[in-house]
Amino acid sequence: MRPIIEVEDLIRHFGATRAVDGVSFTVDAGTVLGLLGPNGAGKTTTVRMLATLLTPDAGRARIDGLDVVTDATRVRAVIGLTGQYAAVDEKLTGRENLWMVGRLLGMDRKQAHDRATELLDRFRLSDAGDRQVRTYSGGMRRRVDLAVSLVGRPAVLFLDEPTTGLDPVSRIEMWDVTRELVSDGTTVLLTTQYLEEADELADRIVVIDNGKVIAQGTADELKDRTGGRTLEVTLAEPADLDRAVGLLHGLGDRRVAVDPQRPGLSVPVDDDTEFAAGVVATLSHAGVAVTDFRLDRPSLDDVFLALTGRATGTGDGTGNGDGDGTGNGDGTGNGDGTGEGDVTTTGAPS
């Protein structure tokens, strides 16, 4: 079957900025594609071109077989767009926003009214539906914004960083809604700065940086390329470090990174939790006092390190929501603290 989104060599420059510089990918109907990249990677620019808001300098994109440039009006009847910031009219009520879009989509008054009620119910906004949107909380705004983009039952939905800046509860809610939509058959293209989010929702992930696709595949494939999970062990005594490294070398030829300041060790373990448990057991049996150990999932920073050999440079920017603080925070922390040691660790497995 033909993919519902086809992107071929899409290019858009702003002056000297190569915002999107030859991006290609396809999305099969009924699946979720995660477009993953740091701030400024070109995610929004790509989405805006696919949503017919921006004309590409070169390349082609088709939605449901329709060209986004030459067939823009028909493309708009197929898509829904929820941008990075809630684009709803603050002076109108939630219901009026939904009603207005229904009317603009050609529904009569009653159809538009019924559809608005249906969506307000679905997004738990029935009580707030007749209040002006400016009185809504951030999470409610996002929900009404998403509801507005669903009025016309789009076959393809673009979600541009749908959870950036949301509190953890609203974020999980957004994820649930997205899953529901997909189970109804909607195709979703979701952009995000969080590997965790792409991991949760996306069937396939396209990683972009500086306007170029630097990797694509399933979440598992990407994690394999980053070396999967890392076991972080903290020791009571810095003096034990050398002995600990020796013991670990005895367990296999994995690369061990040493952090004398913590003091501790990092060992890539991929998904081998048994091996991780073995490491901790071996150390304690040998009398090395372990004060803490844990498995770290790769953060976007780790993916970037693995794919490009450099940090994203936006570690702080990505951490603004506290949702996945641990993952991102640690990635940045390691990178700053013992830069070289970590690069070797994560770079090794390939």
Binding site: L53, R76, G80, A86, A87, L104, G152
Partner: peptide, 13 residues
């Protein structure tokens, strides 16, 4: 500024 123009331009109107 509020993104409403984008919203309207992404609709088939």
């Amino acid at each position: 500024q509020k993104g409403l123009v984008d919203r309207f331009r992404s609709l088939p109107i």
